[in-house]
């Protein structure tokens, strides 16, 4: 395996050639916001929150799926990036109905954390969200589509780790939504094993345990990398 040397925010670094910018940044405690990325799941580069600047290129690249290159100079926190990141969050708030105050995940939500950390204190975009239903047909779990940011973490964990592929995405643009099986009520799904992994990886209060009241839903996904290693070494 060959190694590359490069810079992130003026810090001289080296890493294995197949490492991503995000991996290296995390190893060195350099903050890059992420939403769709989750350690243990395959990266999809969908949310665009992890965009970074490469000196000499006008194109921004997603750190979660971009491998390091010899001599590259990465900027993770330029003003341009800050602006785009805020815009991404604002668009999520425009598309979904995220009322933190009455959300099961209030205080434990990736989206809420990112909004605060990135300084989103107001929204300049018009609110475009329509009222979406809550599917509470499963005996233990429920999904509130109003709070889904379409990161597809649930889809991937269900497919890649549990192997059930109950979740998928349908439709386009603002009408997109995650579905169970062929858009049946979750409670009627024949493939769902009720393992609850999707609940734990969901970054917002979209997927939750029905037994939880406001602010009670704390997600745990530390199990994921271990599960993945176990599966791979079997």
């Amino acid at each position: 395996m060959s190694f590359k040397t490069f810079k992130i925010d003026d810090m001289d670094l080296s890493a294995a050639e197949d490492d991503t910018i995000l991996q290296v940044a995390r190893e060195h405690d350099i903050f890059i916001p992420t939403l769709c990325f989750l350690e243990g799941l395959s990266p999809v580069g969908a949310c665009r929150l992890c965009l970074v600047e490469i000196k000499g290129s006008s194109k921004l690249v997603p750190a979660c799926v971009t491998q390091v290159q010899e001599g590259m100079e990465v900027l993770t926190n330029s003003e341009r990036l800050q602006k785009y990141r805020r815009m991404v969050i604002e668009m999520l708030f425009s598309e979904g109905n995220h009322i933190c105050a009455v959300c099961v995940s209030n205080g434990h939500c990736d989206l809420q954390y990112l909004a605060q950390r990135l300084g989103v204190d107001h929204n300049e975009l018009p609110y475009l969200h329509q009222q979406k239903p809550v599917d509470a047909s499963h005996y233990r779990f429920a999904i509130d589509h109003n709070r889904c940011v379409l990161c597809t973490r649930c889809v991937r964990v269900c497919d890649e780790i549990e192997g059930a592929h109950t979740w998928d995405v349908m439709s386009h643009g603002i009408d997109s939504q995650v579905i169970t099986d062929l858009m049946q009520p979750w409670g009627d799904s024949e493939t769902c094993t009720s393992c609850g992994k999707c609940i734990q990886v969901c970054p917002t209060g979209a997927l939750f345990k029905k037994s939880k009241a406001v602010a009670e839903m704390v997600k745990e996904h530390e199990f994921l990398p271990y599960l993945k290693t176990m599966r791979e070494t079997k």
Partner: peptide, 14 residues
């Protein structure tokens, strides 16, 4: 209407 009942305490407290 349409919301899970467990949200009610916090929702109506508003």
């Amino acid at each position: 209407e349409g919301r899970p009942f467990r949200e009610m305490p916090s929702l109506t407290a508003r």
